[in-house]
Each structure stands twice: as structure tokens, then as C-alpha cells.
Write a protein that binds this DNA or RNA. Structure first.
Lengths: 122, 122
DNA sequence: AAGGGTAGTTCCCTATAGGAAACTACTTCC
DNA sequence: GGAAGTAGTTTCCTATAGGGAACTACCCTT
């Protein structure tokens, strides 16, 4: 006879749902995880370095995604006063807090692949 | 003088990147985490139950997302032979392996909110 | 002065995601 | 018989994501 939501009405669920939406919106898009992952591996990379490291990305998307990440304090952008100006992108200490999440994503994906292979052998 | 990718060329990085892409594609879209989260909390829910629990979702998206999740063995769909037919959706044991990832997402999002509040108090 | 490297921006285009509303089909309650 | 509940499907629409290519602008090397 209940007609209303019951499970997700508790404050704790509301907060969790909101938190998941926040995380998803900050890390939305095709490239953010790859960019962050790359910057966590090799710190201090130039724009062109990233363009080469992140396979398939173009200048437009790289530029836009880096701006998003910088806005959210996950990466820092430093213009160096070298002769042809260069820019150093690196992960912030706050950005590093994403490591466990990125690791979880990678871990689950690897296990998923393995489970597909296992399933095929039946 | 290097002109080629160096960091992401190692096999381990390749595998990680691929794994992250896999996970992202399986959990893509606005609703999958919410649906999965709801099904993990309260098992065995009908279509209309989910429609009520997952705030804002419409029938079309719910139906489509459930099909995606079922295809990937993350949720199961059972038609019950009740008088007006009802359907029971529940999380599979494999779907439950996503719990740590979902928890990580929620945890990071909660900490993110908190850090925004902390930053404002300065 | 031409070529190549730095770091982007701008414009144009298409594909996909996602929402609203109407519709199907079947059953039970009043 | 009509309302309301079950579980969806279909159609139409818009907004956003994302890609390609060209372009800017500055500097160094040859």
C-alpha cells in the first residue's frame, strides 16, 4: 500500500546520492580519469606531453578538460618563463585524494575483463 | 627531445586505462549508480518501486538503464506469476562487487563537499 | 625567411543522452 | 464499466558531448 519512496528517503541515503552526483559531475566526460591518471604517474607535464600521453585526445578537449580540472583544484597550471613559454601541469595534493577511486575503477575493470574471459571458457 | 608518449606506454598503464574505460562505459550515464545503490540497499524492488526511489528518473530511462545493467549481469529481472504480473529487480552477487567503488564515489563526494565548506570559512 | 616546436582557441559539424508525454496491455478493485 | 495499478514502449524534441580542421601567436633553429 506504500506509494512513496522509502529506501532513499533516509538522510544518509540522500547525502550519499548527492555525493555520488557531485563526484560524477566533477569527473564527467571521456577524458578526465585518463588525464588525472597520467598526471598522477608522471608529475609536471606540458600540454604537448599530455597530448601525446593521453591517446586519442585532441587539443580542444584536452584544453577544456584541463580547465575543468583546474577549476576544481584537481590539477595546477603553471606558466614557466622559459624562452618559448611552456606550461607545467601537475596534480594537486587534493587531486591525489582521487587515487583510491581511480584505483577502484581500474581494479573493478580488470576483474570485469577477467570474469568475461572466465565465462567464455565454460 | 622525446616526441613520444613514455608514461602511458607501459603495459600496466595500458591495462589500467583500458580497465577504466570499461568500467566507465558499463556505469555510464546519469542513473546507473543511483539504481545500483538503491538495489544494494533494498533488494527485490519492482519497476514502480524503483521509479519512486530513484528521484527524477522517468520510465524510459529506468527501463533502458535496467536493460543495460541486466545485460551486464549486474542486476537480475524476474517476472513473477502474480495476478497482475509484477517484476522483481535485484542486484546480482556480481553487481555487489561494485559496492567498494560506489562507496569510494560517495566518500570522495562527501569529502569534496566538506572541503568546499572548509574553504569558504577562510 | 621557412620550418617546427610551444600552447592553445575558434568554428562547424554529428551523434548521443536524456526528458516529456502519450500509448499499450493486462488485472483488480469499487 | 471506470479508475487505478502493474510494466513498460514509442515518438518527438532539445541540449550537450565530442571530434576535425583551421587558425593565432610567439619563439628558436637552420
Amino acid at each position: 500500500m506504500r506509494k512513496k519512496a522509502v529506501i532513499n528517503n533516509s538522510p544518509v541515503c540522500q547525502v550519499r546520492m548527492q555525493a555520488i552526483s557531485d563526484t560524477m559531475s566533477i569527473l564527467s566526460g571521456k577524458w578526465k580519469f585518463h588525464i588525472l591518471g597520467t598526471l598522477i604517474e608522471g608529475d609536471k607535464l606540458g600540454f604537448m606531453d599530455l597530448l601525446r600521453e593521453v591517446k586519442g585526445i585532441g587539443t580542444k578537449m584536452l584544453s577544456k578538460e584541463l580547465q575543468d580540472l583546474e577549476m576544481n583544484q584537481l590539477v595546477s597550471r603553471t606558466v614557466m618563463n622559459t624562452k618559448p613559454i611552456t606550461v607545467e601541469y601537475s596534480i594537486t595534493k587534493y587531486g591525489k585524494t582521487l587515487s583510491p577511486l581511480i584505483d577502484e575503477m581500474a581494479k573493478w575493470g580488470i576483474e570485469y575483463r577477467q570474469s568475461m574471459i572466465d565465462a567464455e571458457r565454460d
